[in-house]
Design a protein around this nucleic acid. Structure first.
Lengths: 192, 192
DNA sequence: ACGGGCATGTAAGCGGTTACATGATTCG
DNA sequence: CGAATCATGTAACCGCTTACATGCCCGT
């Protein structure tokens, strides 16, 4: 249940409304940790009930700003230091790659080209963000330092995937063109 | 709903039981696309109803092997060529990094060290797998070629994360102590 | 006055995890 | 004979997404 802790972490910087939090999640974390507004509003309600946050102020258009409590601060710190990282990743692109052998070579080539393009673009978005940060556009508070690290992670992961897609294009296609016939025959049983 | 297509893809290699599929998902895809057995059995049931697979044979201990049908083959090919890739990623490690500023410097250092270790280990597991493959241990069928690409993706993603964690350790801590540029060499003018 | 963005929510449904439950077979 | 592993499932619950629904306020 990390959305809760993500919200608490953002609120640790200062009061914000559900709408604000939704936007901030989108900005940097959007491609790394998606969070839709219904989930956010629901979670905020639950956290008020649990005493982790409370309502700071009411604004125009029914706006409600939330403020983190001491219990909330303690909870986000507990999460950061005590709770094991959930290392689950779920990359559909890599799942698909397991089944590339079912695709026609030129469908596959097109697919990999599009994939490479997508990841390259994502990496560029993050890199541009990093450059704006390094140019001092956001100041140099501890929060911004942390954000810089997150962004760097985005750059590196997307660059890795972009390079992977380009590598895959050169790996698979020659195998389909030039011989490389399956002369093995014995292979079939599972276990490796 | 990619679990369905993953199962179909594996069944395209030949008949298998739910238990087999569960194990095969674990092996290579375990860290890239988790799939628990209850979900697998449920999905197999639904796919039989939908005519994408049917029961191939009954074995000992109530074992049921499933065989892909023509409709199933068509469906997995449709998925591979027609359906847009779901590019959603969800990396808790990067979400957390956004809140590093809330951590004590030595908690953070310990955290990043453990993270680096974990990702390095994962990368090593995949790299070892890749080497066994490249040594010809699994033959060189098209399926194995595809698997090789998946593995390469695993290596690259985990290596990227490992390097990121190591970079982060050199980036953040000098800022807390007394300045000094990160090894990476990229500009960070506003860095303390 | 009106359109776009601010702002908050509800409800249905899906996909996934965890815990529970059971039994057969093989191997030592 | 007992333990490990094979093998299949159900049920409860959780987290998340999508679609639906509403209304206000600001700028032009």
């Amino acid at each position: 249940m990390s959305l809760r802790h993500g919200l608490l972490g953002l609120l640790a910087e200062g009061p914000a409304s559900g709408y604000d939090l939704s936007r901030r999640f989108q900005e940097v974390l959007g491609a790394l940790w998606p969070a839709q507004h219904p989930k956010i509003y629901a979670e905020l309600g639950r956290m008020v009930d649990g005493g982790l946050i409370d309502i700071d102020s009411h604004g125009p258009r029914g706006r409600k700003a939330y403020r983190i409590t001491e219990a909330g601060r303690a909870e986000v710190r507990r999460w950061l230091t005590q709770v094991d990282v959930d290392h689950t990743v779920r990359l559909e692109a890599l799942l698909r790659s397991y089944f590339f052998w079912l695709m026609e070579p030129d469908d596959l080539a097109r697919h990999l080209a599009r994939e490479a393009e997508f990841y390259t673009e994502q990496a560029a978005i993050y890199r541009a963000y990093a450059e704006r940060k390094d140019a001092g556009e956001f100041g140099s508070t501890p929060q911004v330092q942390s954000m810089r690290i997150t962004i760097e992670g985005g750059v590196r992961v997307y660059e890795a995937l972009a390079e992977w897609a380009r590598w895959a294009a050169t790996y698979k296609l020659p195998a389909a063109a030039d011989g490389g016939a399956p002369e093995d025959g014995t292979a079939n049983s599972d276990d490796g």
